[in-house]
Amino acid sequence: MKLTGTLERRGLLRGGLSLGALTLLTGCDISDNDSVHRALAAMSRWNDRAQAALFGGTRLAPVFAEKDAVKDFRYNAFFAAKDSPQLAAGDYKLELSGLIADKKPWTVDMLYGLPEQSSQITRHVCVEGWSMIGKWSGPPLSVLLRTVGADLSAKYVGFQCADGYHGSIDMASALHPQTILAFKLSDEVLPVKYGYPFKVRIPTKLGFKNPKWVTTMYVTNRYPGGFWEDRGYNWFSGL
């Protein structure tokens, strides 16, 4: 009977440990451990692949009615709205680099003159959990990519922004019909604080994958990462 008693206690102890250890350690040690970070990063890369496999290149994000679109859209960045980069229409140039045939820079007039412009009323979903429906207008990013002779078989399209932000997306998402250069929000020329002269609006991705104040676009096969992705957020971040 003594043996049973010991076994019982050992079982209790072990069970108690596995249940309690996490609750006790969660606050600090576990998450801030280097090898844990590496393991989580490996899982995140696996999730990139799973999401790419799930992604439907022509599957459309739900569109909403005009009345659902928020007029006073939430401002969101890691600095105050008044500190937004002021890009003047006269000086602005979109630089192109990487696997693009025609790398001549694009002015605001050239961009705003792109064909196939249309409006979409879609849900912007933030990684923090909030979401908001807005109305954006502009041409598909694919039109620009085709016009400049980008290598559409390359893996990534990357963006550098005037505020130091940078990001990248997979080519399939870049070519998605709802991925647009948003020149307008709520039918008005995109205000400075929302990314003038344009925001890359990608309704199939989380909000932080929708760069604003873009000054350079490049196409590459080398993984470019991104501002938040380099800090541990999932890269694909598809919806």
Binding site: C28, S31, S44, N47, V127, G232, N234
Partner: peptide, 26 residues
């Protein structure tokens, strides 16, 4: 679960949401 926000901020430059999301989706 997601680390001590200040420690995580020092290590990775984010304050624990990315860490929590990585745990969740892992």
């Amino acid at each position: 679960l997601g680390g001590d926000p200040r420690v995580t901020q020092g290590l990775t430059g984010e304050d624990g949401l990315a860490n929590a999301l990585a745990w969740h989706f892992g």
